[in-house]
Amino acid sequence: MAHTVTSPVYVVQDNIDTDQIIPAQYLTLVPTIPDEYDKLGSYALIGLPDALYPTRFVEEGQFKSPYKIVIGGRNFGCGSSREHAPIALGAAGVEAVVADSFARIFFRNCVATGECYPYDTPVRLCDVLHTGDIATLDFDHDTLTANGVTYSLKPLGEVRPVIEAGGIFNFARQSGMIPAQG
């Protein structure tokens, strides 16, 4: 996996719950069925109120988003335990979510699935960055650089190798916790 990613960012505010990330009517899609996985990507963040977020995250008719980095405020991913949420973001091409804080189950689901990196930011980036700004996320130095400024992020620590391995199963196999797949 590349150790940096450069992409326009998509900026959201506090309390983006799982219904806004992937609304309940799309939960009939089963993430382990490949076609349905791709479809989940096409609906990522479609539950955001249009008035607050006039720019769509994924263009109508597309499966991928141009934004590989999502910037959020407090409590990103709160609400339901649906793994469809990090999966929809991952399927849309998101590499990382950088937020003030994360809801517990969302954070855990990011790690378990290996779909995207949940980075905590000590500086409230959702107030200084705008959707479309180009940023570079450096996974080795735990920094995000945008508009000429470099921000330090909280290091991912013990969860990084799990996500890098592609989720808990691969990680558990690599480390011998469960047997290799026959």
């Binding site: 219904d19 539950g47 249009d50």
Partner: peptide, 9 residues
């Protein structure tokens, strides 16, 4: 949360 019971507005 917005849209929880259906329409997001």
């Amino acid at each position: 949360f917005p849209g929880r019971m259906g329409n997001k507005e």
